[in-house]
Amino acid sequence: MRFFLWLFLWLFRWLSTWLFVPRHGRALYESLAGAIAFSIVVLAVLSAAPNSIRKYTIRAVTLLAGAFFACEFLYPVHSMPTGADPAHRGNFLTPYVFTVTTFALIVSAWTVGLGLLNLAQLHGKRLIRGGENAIYSAAFFFGLISVGIIGLLQKPHANAINKNLYTLLYTGALQNLDATVFSIIAFYIVSAAYRAFRVRSIEATLLLATAIVVMLGQTSIGQVMTSHFPTAMHTEVIRDWIMSQPNAAAVRAINFGLAVGSLAVALRVWLGLERGSFFDSQ
């Protein structure tokens, strides 16, 4: 057991000193090609493996990663590194946190790629099938390819064309589209608030009164309206009290419930007890 632990830690030390160091020039491209080839092989092996093996592999990786972070967090912590004393590194597992989290970051980055593949598959089928919604799928491919290519080109080849195209697509189109979509919500909120906020019961009346006070307290005009009243009746003072007392109490209660629920779900996922997963439906 001690040997396996030693081997495990040695492997991580080796990985952190050799694998995760910045590379430049040819070495960078070679590392990239190697990493992509390795990942494709791993994915191909996992895809070809029977469900039972995949299921246990994923459970084992989840258990191991979860155990590492749990042990690292729960094991007594020594002083952390500082600018003056960078040698202090928490407990004996802390030096490996960087390597394990780098693995997790790589897996997260791969999931983005997987999402893109799924989207491309879905929109590719729609585009081939045609129909009135095919134009949206074409727009997806246009956006993905153009932003992707220009985004990749504009850093290593920062000429005027690439920079201007990048500014046009990113600052000119994407940011404004994002802001526009979000701004439209304001219009829906006005319409929904006008229709939904009706004093049909005592609870609804209380909610409406509170909402009006909070809204007024969040604006300067509300402060002007109550500036001649005693301080305790100023909208901003009442708003601060509502937010820091009744609101905080309610949010705290919700957070306690959420935390207990999240802990239960995390334990189930960690120990592989979660039902209704992909493999169970197979």
């Binding site: 006005v190 608030a193 906020f197 409406l208 300067s220 005009i221």
Partner: peptide, 24 residues
């Protein structure tokens, strides 16, 4: 944007109050 923020909030409150008064 301070004046816009205040004006938008007043508009929302005005219409909420208007709808409720009419209902009552």
């Amino acid at each position: 944007a301070n004046a816009s923020l205040s004006a938008a909030h007043v508009l929302i409150i005005f219409f909420i109050v208007l709808g409720n008064v009419a209902m009552l």
